[in-house]
């Protein structure tokens, strides 16, 4: 019989220690964690960015990633979106009893790989095991800290009329890749989640021009929701052009089939940047030079009229309002 995670693994006793040593210490190997103290202790100076997030994706493995990679990338990206260099992360695992040990190891390894790519260390963590049905296989909660370089001031409230809106690449890959694996919805697609750490992309953008006004990663709720948040926070309007939006044909096709709009589908390795017009080309060039920004494009600009409103120029030359996502994405009936 294959090894499975049991309630005893979360008891704090011998088996729990074994799990920590076998699965976590080995993979995340670093001196902070190895001390096994109640908290990780480190020196930091400068302006700190601090974030937290929880990951409950289903299924936990999907094309292009898994919940471990997603947890690390998502946390790294939240830090990067404030311009911070991500440094230290915490990872807490809430495991449903019965999860195969092999699957947990795979997830931990892939979390570590993502952490390595992003140059962050997982310095503290926790494990709880709950009864079957009390969680769905595995949930991960994270926190992360990073340092914001001097001269960088990025906030959702900083967009100004005349600024350009830049998107780092094609939208909708993650949401559709995950959906394609859901029970009862399996459709075959070559599509992979775009799940990736964006800290290096942000660092290169800031090198090209430290004067970036806003950064946001359009995760749940998609690009439409991020743009609405930015327009409301900055009390400006945002106008984008449909024909400039990068979307893969596979994503468009899946969206048509399911009745979704790619603007509302989740991404995990994309960012939208709002930058002053004069620096836009430099930032765009820097983005295109990074692996995760190859498909970057200027998709629109910021205006002063109708604060809080996002409008899209369609391929027919008409305009329509892009609202926030309401409720959950549900497939249509006919």
């Amino acid at each position: 019989m294959k090894d499975k995670i049991l309630l005893a693994h979360g008891s704090g006793g011998k088996q729990a220690h074994e799990l920590v040593e076998k699965s976590f210490l080995k993979a995340f190997a670093n001196p902070f964690l190895a001390k096994l103290d109640d908290s990780a202790v480190f020196d930091l100076s400068g302006r700190l960015a601090f974030t937290t997030d929880s990951y409950v994706v289903s299924p936990i493995f999907f094309p292009g990633g898994d919940i471990g990679k997603l947890a690390v990338c998502g946390t790294v990206n939240d830090l990067a979106m404030s311009g911070a260099k991500p440094l230290y992360l915490s990872l807490s695992f809430i495991i449903e009893e019965g999860l195969p040990q092999g699957e947990l190891n795979e997830i931990v390894d892939s979390a570590q790989k993502a952490a390595q790519e992003a140059g962050v260390k997982i310095v503290t963590g926790d494990t709880k095991v709950v009864h079957q049905g009390s969680a769905d296989k595995l949930f991960i909660n994270t926190a992360g800290v990073g340092i914001i370089p001097e001269g960088v001031d990025i906030s959702g409230g900083n967009a100004r009329p005349g600024d350009k809106v830049i998107l780092s690449g094609a939208i909708g890959d993650h949401g559709i890749a995950v959906l394609s694996q859901r029970e009862g919805l399996s459709f075959s697609t070559q599509l992979k989640s775009d799940c990736a750490p964006l800290d290096s992309l942000v660092a290169e953008m800031l090198k090209a021009s430290p004067n970036i006004h806003c950064l946001r990663d359009p995760t749940r709720g998609g690009l439409a929701t991020s743009l609405n948040e930015l327009a409301k926070q900055s009390k400006v309007s945002i106008r984008i052009e449909e024909e400039k939006l990068p979307v893969r044909e596979e994503v468009l096709a899946a969206c048509e089939m399911l009745g979704f709009d790619p603007l509302y589908v989740a991404n995990e390795g994309k960012l939208v940047a709002i930058v002053p017009a004069e620096g836009a080309d430099k930032v765009l060039k820097a983005m295109r030079g990074n692996h995760y920004g190859k498909g970057a494009a200027i998709i629109g600009e910021v205006g002063a009229e109708h604060p809080g409103r996002v409008v899209m120029k369609t391929c027919l030359g008409t305009s329509r309002i892009i609202d926030m996502l309401v409720g959950d994405l549900l497939p249509r009936i006919c």
Binding site: S319, I321, V326, R332, I333, C334
Partner: peptide, 19 residues
């Protein structure tokens, strides 16, 4: 309610809005 309902289409896509 329905994604294909007239009211939802009017509401979501700002029926008649000339930006």
């Amino acid at each position: 309610v329905s994604s294909e309902g007239s009211c939802s289409a009017h509401y979501l896509y700002g029926g008649g809005f000339e930006g």
